[in-house]
């Protein structure tokens, strides 16, 4: 079941991307797509939606990014029709654990969880299990 899942990682930090790739390589999933900032992430989602392609099941979203940050991504996500796709589960993956950030993230219904970095295999495994249950 997990093999069917696709994950989108939106993060500008190449080391985080490297580490996340390394972590996810230990799990069997269908595909991991990486985008370097919020705008690239949204563009990717909109392009797939317009081409009637499946959207990723899981989005791992960093907050602090150039061009369009995580908050900008969340705004754009709720504005563009992506909100009609309840199966897309967004996980914020930030080095911040500031209460203001966590409370703000909670105002978006499609944000499943606020993960304070580092992302560990244990947490990612839970994320996958959650996504599978959700899909069924």
């Amino acid at each position: 079941m997990k093999k069917d899942l696709t994950v989108l990682l939106v993060d500008d930090d190449r080391i985080t991307v490297f580490l996340t790739q390394k972590l996810i390589s230990g799990f069997e999933i269908k595909e991991l797509v990486c985008k370097e900032n919020g705008k690239a992430g949204i563009d990717y989602l909109v392009a797939r939606k317009d081409a009637s392609l499946e959207l990723p099941d899981i989005v791992l979203l960093d907050l602090n990014m150039p061009v369009l940050d995580g908050w900008g991504f969340l705004e754009a996500f709720s504005e563009s029709c992506c909100a009609d796709n309840p199966k897309v589960a967004i996980y914020i993956c930030s080095s911040s654990d500031a209460p203001t950030d966590i409370l703000r993230a909670k105002t978006y219904p499609f944000v499943r969880q606020f993960i304070t970095k580092p992302l560990t295999p244990k947490i990612f495994s839970e994320v996958l299990t959650n996504a599978v249950n959700h899909k069924v």
């Binding site: 080391i15 985080t16 580490l19 390394k22 602090n64 080095s95 911040s96 500031a98 970095k117």
Partner: peptide
């Protein structure tokens, strides 16, 4: 505090992950 949460803690987390690996 935002700088510490994002710009310092981020690379620190990465460093400890790299060292674990």
């Amino acid at each position: 505090s935002s700088i510490i949460a994002h710009n310092i803690r981020g690379p620190m987390t990465n460093m400890s992950a790299i060292i674990n690996l």
